[in-house]
Design a protein around this nucleic acid. Sequence first.
DNA 1: ATACATGCAAACATTTTGCTTTGGC
DNA 2: GCCAAAGCAAAATGTTTGCATGTAT
Lengths: 169, 169
Amino acid sequence: MSRHHHHHHEGCQRRDAAQLLEQCLQRAKAAGLRRTAALHEVLALLLEACQPLTLADLSADPRLAALADRSTVYRLLVKLEQHALVRRVGLHDRAAYYHIHLPGEHHDYLICEGCGRIERLEQSCPVEALEQTLSAQSGFTNLKHDLTFYGLCPHCSSGSSQPCCDLVH
Amino acid sequence: MSRHHHHHHEGCQRRDAAQLLEQCLQRAKAAGLRRTAALHEVLALLLEACQPLTLADLSADPRLAALADRSTVYRLLVKLEQHALVRRVGLHDRAAYYHIHLPGEHHDYLICEGCGRIERLEQSCPVEALEQTLSAQSGFTNLKHDLTFYGLCPHCSSGSSQPCCDLVH
DNA sequence: ATACATGCAAACATTTTGCTTTGGC
DNA sequence: GCCAAAGCAAAATGTTTGCATGTAT
């Protein structure tokens, strides 16, 4: 489980959730994956979560725990990452975090070092332009980037010792 | 050892190496650390390296291995990070990477996903401005950020199966 | 003299793999 | 039926800690 665990129940309120899921399943099939219950649920959970999840987060979720072993989830994530359906990010925690990668979408995150809360940033990323330049200058191809901000959220800034969100330990 | 290990022998050619080291030692002392041989060498290695190093990289270096146990290096890194003398970054590897943090300096990195080579970017980071905005909007304080680019270096792009740099395995 | 730093070994957490069985196509 | 996926358990990797001892201040 992530160091600072939160409930992920709400998730993104995407109107076209079912449709997006179906799209991902199609992409997965195109990548050679079989349409299994575990794959379905991993994608569903990642789509619902508005933030990156760890392997532990995923495989502990009752909806997934009921139908797939952790190693299965792990292998799914590896394959999904290889085919660019998910992205793995560091986020300064010991565990790796995964988030869904939709074509044309890119997200940066803001993390509170006090309580571990992860917020997805909605503003457009200012780095796209630099990426072009960099590619030209360095000769690197297939450039991607990770941009993450760290700081103290308003509550943690205030020096309060109370947890500022529903931490579960 | 990092997944893609390189020789770090050359390092940055800083003219004022000795002076910088002394400055860091001063800052460390101010933070309450004692001036030990291990601390000296950890800082020296981090200053020389132009790229983030893992705990394994550091403690395997003969100059440090000779005089400090890995757990000592680990504890030094933890303390140095707490006092902002070093920064820990993710870099998509299993191990944590550490690099020196000099006042007023900030570096982003470009990593080849093929051979693991890490390049430090010299251009100024375009994110500083956004950081201000973000702080105002979100109420977060003490904002920092990590920006890392991933791609394939010219050699790895070419599809050659030859290693493009002095990998040690 | 005291408190911090160290070495060594053990505990932990997380990832990764081997092998057999199951199930999608 | 064939090959990928899954389950289980063990190995591998990297981090973290406990405790007795050494050492900077």
